[in-house]
Amino acid sequence: MSNALHVGLNHYLVVSSLLFMIGVAGVLVRKNVIVILMSIELMLNAVNLSFAAFSHFNQEPGGQVMVFFVMAIAAAEAAIGLAIAVAVYRKFNGIEIKLFENLKG
């Protein structure tokens, strides 16, 4: 049993998949747009964790470079997501996800 508790690549994968599932549940369950954006950040961070774990255990710098790019894109996505959410809040004075249906063409 103590052999299985010695931390290896799989332990990081388990934690990353759990974190990813929490992110998915957050997106499905919550109404507030900003909490949905946060859950998306959680999902992206779960991917970052597994990238870093693979890069560490396979001695491959490519994994860490991918984490770098995911961070850049996730930050840009959060910035734009919030800009849209603020624009919707100023127009419809509420931040629920159902208000976004009014953006239909």
Partner: peptide, 20 residues
């Protein structure tokens, strides 16, 4: 997503290598 990594925890033993 949970079963696959959990099941292999008991068999595959990955050692820490030289860091990147």
């Amino acid at each position: 997503a949970l079963i696959i990594p959990l099941s292999t925890v008991f068999f595959i033993r990955t050692e820490k290598t030289k860091p990147v």
